[in-house]
Amino acid sequence: MSATDTKIPSIIDPDEARRERLRKLERTGSWLLPLIIMVAAIALWDRICVWNEIPQYILPRPGVVLDTLIKDAALLFSSLLVTLRITVLSLALAVIGGVGLAVLFTQSRFVEMSLFPFAIVLQVTPIVAIFPLINIYVDDQTTKLLLCAWIVAFFPILSNTTLGLNSVDRNLIDYFRLNGATRWQTLWHLRLPAAMPYFLGGLKIAGGLALIGAVVAEFVAGTAGQSSGLASRIIEAGYRLNAPRLFAALILISLTGIVIFLALSWISHLVLHRWHESALKQEH
Score class of each variant (00 low, 15 high):
residue 215 V to K: 06
residue 17 A to F: 06
residue 20 E to G: 01
residue 272 L to G: 09
residue 31 W to Y: 15
residue 279 A to L: 08
residue 151 I to G: 02
residue 84 L to A: 15
residue 209 L to E: 01
residue 2 S to F: 10
residue 230 L to I: 05
residue 221 A to E: 15
residue 153 A to V: 09
residue 143 T to K: 10
residue 175 Y to E: 07
residue 31 W to H: 08
residue 101 L to Y: 08
residue 142 T to C: 00
residue 199 F to L: 14
residue 247 F to I: 10
residue 77 F to N: 09
residue 82 V to W: 01
residue 75 L to F: 00
residue 186 T to W: 04
residue 115 L to T: 09
residue 93 L to E: 00
residue 269 H to W: 12
residue 196 M to D: 00
residue 177 R to P: 06
residue 228 S to A: 15
residue 166 N to I: 01
residue 284 H to R: 13
residue 100 G to M: 01
residue 105 F to E: 14
residue 256 T to V: 02
residue 8 I to S: 03
residue 3 A to M: 12
residue 40 A to S: 14
residue 164 G to Y: 05
residue 188 W to G: 03
residue 225 G to C: 02
residue 66 L to A: 12
residue 94 A to K: 00
residue 244 P to M: 02
residue 156 P to L: 02
residue 251 I to F: 11
residue 167 S to E: 04
residue 16 E to K: 15
residue 188 W to T: 11
residue 172 L to M: 15
residue 64 V to S: 10
residue 241 L to P: 11
residue 158 L to E: 06
residue 107 Q to G: 07
residue 47 R to H: 02
residue 200 L to S: 03
residue 131 F to I: 13
residue 175 Y to G: 01
residue 247 F to E: 03
residue 117 P to R: 04
residue 137 Y to H: 05
residue 237 A to K: 02
residue 200 L to F: 03
residue 113 M to N: 14
residue 230 L to V: 01
residue 74 A to D: 14
residue 237 A to F: 01
residue 121 V to T: 04
residue 219 F to G: 09
residue 247 F to V: 08
residue 100 G to E: 03
residue 55 P to N: 13
residue 29 G to N: 10
residue 108 S to D: 11
residue 84 L to P: 07
residue 89 L to R: 00
residue 55 P to M: 12
residue 283 E to A: 12
residue 236 E to D: 11
residue 239 Y to P: 08
residue 272 L to P: 10
residue 196 M to A: 12
residue 47 R to K: 05
residue 246 L to F: 07
residue 10 S to Q: 13
residue 139 D to N: 15
residue 125 T to F: 07
residue 28 T to S: 13
residue 219 F to T: 09
residue 178 L to H: 10
residue 93 L to M: 05
residue 251 I to Q: 01
residue 1 M to W: 03
residue 29 G to C: 08
residue 29 G to V: 03
residue 173 I to W: 01
residue 63 G to L: 14
residue 131 F to G: 06
residue 12 I to C: 00
residue 115 L to C: 13
residue 44 L to Q: 03
residue 282 Q to K: 11
residue 222 G to S: 09
